[in-house]
Structures are given as structure tokens and as C-alpha cells.
């Protein structure tokens, strides 16, 4: 088949992404370096002096969330694959997926009432007698953002990881079991290496998704330091300062790009092997 007809068929879809994503992305990058007279780095200066704490804060929050999501996904996937009690496996399988398609803004609203000082979490724990009332504290700060991110992204990562684990050839696992290996050892030494690729894809997608969420930090924790997305939105809505916002955006894109690039390079090297 010639290349003309397929190209024509793809053109409309490509132009939607081109016009309404790539073009504005280009403007964003150009805007970060554009000064009144020629290219400049002054926006990065402003961004660095005002928001370096926020950048660090963002990376720590998202990094911690990513690690917790990874651990949780392996734990859930591992139990679903190696668990011996069918009832418990079924219960876990039916529960963990619920937040999968729930929007971030709904997750944020649900968490806001749940983890506050007088929220449902503290109330339940106190009523059950698990903690004394004096321990009740508000988690509506950086910890709340992490809790919300993990709650929302864990099902996605766990779904991918559990799927990959279910597709594994079970003979390796059974051989190890016959040799008397414990389940934790099997999970870490046999199952995990085989699903590492899927796990890394899930974690990278979670990382870049969390990098661009505005609603969660906005609704869970308003105080400073805050996340880059809130800082960007503030520069635009309150000050109309596109230069600094674009510089911050450039840094955010760079962080996402670096993570994706490191992974791409590693996976290309793995394929070459």
C-alpha cells in the first residue's frame, strides 16, 4: 500500500494534538526564555528565588508517593498471585480497584473530610478506642497530598503489576516452592525481576500524572510551601505573569522528561542485550 492514503487518514488526528498540545507546549517553552528584548534567563532567576522550596517540596512529595505506590502495588500484586487463602485473595481483588477511575478532584474532596483533625478517620479510630482523642491531628498538609496521591494512583499501578504477575509462567514459582523457598523470597527473587518493566512503566506514568495535578494540592493543603502546579496557577490567575509561570512549567516538563528519558534509555539497552 502506498503511504499517501494512510497519511491522509492520520492527518486529522495528528493535527488535533499538534494544534492543541504541541503548539502551546512550544509557546510555553519559548515563553520561558522570552524577554522584552531578546532571549533571557530572568524568568528562571525569579522562579528559582521565589519557588526553589516549592520545587524541592514537589519532588519530595511526588518521589515519596511514587515509592509508596510501587511498594503497595508489589504487595497487592504479590498477595493476589501468591496468596493461599482464596477468600482473602478475592476480597483484596474486589477492593483495591475502586479508586481506579475516580477523578483527582473527587479524591481530594473525599480525603479533605476524611483526614482532617475532626475527620472521619480520627473519629473512627477514637470511637474504636484505637487512639486517645489527644492524638487526633490534621493530615491536611504535605502528608495529606501524599495520602491522596497514593489512594488515587495505587489501583492503577497495582492493576498493571497484578496483571503482569498473573501472566507469568508459574513453573518457576512452583519450582522455588518445591525447593522450600518462602513466599516473600519468591516474590522478591523470582516474581519481581520478571515484572520490573511493567512496574517501572506504571510508576513513570504515575509520576508524570501526579506532576500535573492541580486540584489535589489546591484542595488538601493551601499553605506554603506548596507544589509547582499551585505556584504556576497563582502566577497566572493573580499576577498574569506568564514568564515565571512558563519557566516553572519548563522545570516541571524537564523533571517529567528526565524520568521518562532515563527509563527509555534503560529499556532500549535492555532490548539490545
Amino acid at each position: 500500500m502506498s503511504q499517501i492514503l494512510p497519511s491522509l487518514l492520520i492527518a486529522p488526528a495528528l493535527s488535533v494534538v499538534g494544534l492543541f498540545f504541541l503548539l502551546p507546549l512550544g509557546f510555553s517553552i519559548a515563553g520561558a526564555f522570552a524577554g522584552r528584548d531578546g532571549p533571557t534567563l530572568v524568568h528562571f532567576d525569579t522562579a528559582y528565588s521565589l519557588y526553589r522550596t516549592d520545587l524541592l517540596f514537589t519532588l519530595v512529595i511526588i518521589g515519596t508517593s511514587t515509592v509508596l505506590i510501587g511498594l503497595g502495588a508489589v504487595a497487592i500484586g504479590g498477595y493476589l498471585t501468591l496468596g493461599r487463602n482464596q477468600t482473602a485473595v478475592r476480597l483484596l481483588g474486589a477492593m483495591y480497584r475502586w479508586p481506579l477511575f475516580i477523578p483527582f478532584i473527587v479524591a481530594a474532596q473525599a480525603m479533605r473530610g476524611f483526614i482532617g483533625q475532626n475527620g472521619l478517620m480520627n473519629t473512627t479510630l477514637i470511637t474504636l478506642g484505637l487512639i486517645p482523642p489527644a492524638w487526633a491531628q490534621s493530615f491536611l498538609d504535605w502528608r495529606g497530598i501524599i495520602i491522596t496521591f497514593v489512594w488515587k494512583q495505587l489501583p492503577f499501578a497495582a492493576l498493571l503489576v497484578a496483571g503482569a504477575m498473573a501472566a507469568l509462567d508459574r513453573s518457576g514459582i512452583e519450582a522455588a516452592q518445591n525447593l522450600g523457598a518462602g513466599r516473600l523470597r519468591i516474590l522478591v527473587r523470582i516474581v519481581l525481576p520478571q515484572v520490573a518493566r511493567t512496574l517501572s512503566v506504571a510508576l513513570i506514568l504515575s509520576f508524570v500524572t501526579m506532576m500535573s495535578v492541580l486540584s489535589v494540592p489546591l484542595m488538601i493543603s493551601g499553605q506554603s510551601p506548596t507544589m509547582l502546579t499551585v505556584a504556576m496557577a497563582w502566577r497566572i490567575t493573580a499576577l498574569g505573569d506568564y514568564g515565571t509561570a512558563n519557566a516553572l512549567g519548563f522545570v516541571a516538563c524537564l523533571a517529567s522528561g528526565l524520568v521518562a528519558w532515563t527509563w527509555l534509555r534503560r529499556s532500549v539497552r535492555e532490548k539490545a542485550r
Binding site: 502551546p24 507546549l25 510555553s28 515563553g31 508524570v208 509561570a245 512558563n246 512549567g249 516541571a252 516538563c253
Partner: peptide, 12 residues
Amino acid sequence: PQAFPNLPVSIN
């Protein structure tokens, strides 16, 4: 569009 933070794109 899913891989890059969409906030800077949205404002532009």
C-alpha cells in the same frame, strides 16, 4: 499530552 504536565500547556 499525558506524559507532560499539562498545566503550562493549558495556560498557553
